[in-house]
């Protein structure tokens, strides 16, 4: 069971959260100028690393706000959580 630290509510059980996939994906603009290739890349061709992944989470059964987390997909250890408007934190190696 993961213990996820919501930036607003503090550490809470993973049952309260919804995973939203890869973080820091910006919708390409303007839509009419985007090629099929680039739309497909934005929609489907995401990063799927074995290791550190920046991802979106929603505290669905809590404050209902979205935030970002840096999580290792092998160990499931969450190294940091941060608000949507904050940059991805640098982690010590």
């Amino acid at each position: 069971m993961l213990l996820i630290s919501c930036p607003w509510c503090g550490p809470r059980d993973e049952d309260e959260f919804l995973n939203g996939g890869e973080a820091h994906l910006d919708r390409p603009e303007p839509p009419e100028a985007i090629s099929d290739e680039d739309w497909a890349a934005y929609l489907f061709f995401h990063h799927n690393p074995r290791g550190m992944l920046a991802e979106r989470w929603a505290h669905s059964y809590g404050c209902r706000r979205w935030f970002h987390a840096l999580r290792d997909t092998v160990t499931h250890r969450i190294h940091a959580t941060y608000k949507l408007d904050e940059p991805r934190p640098e982690l010590p190696e």
Binding site: M1, E14, T73
Partner: peptide, 12 residues
């Protein structure tokens, strides 16, 4: 319900 390379699975 989230990306994983850990061959064990979670409790929920």
């Amino acid at each position: 319900a989230y990306a994983s390379y850990a061959q064990r699975g979670n409790l929920p």
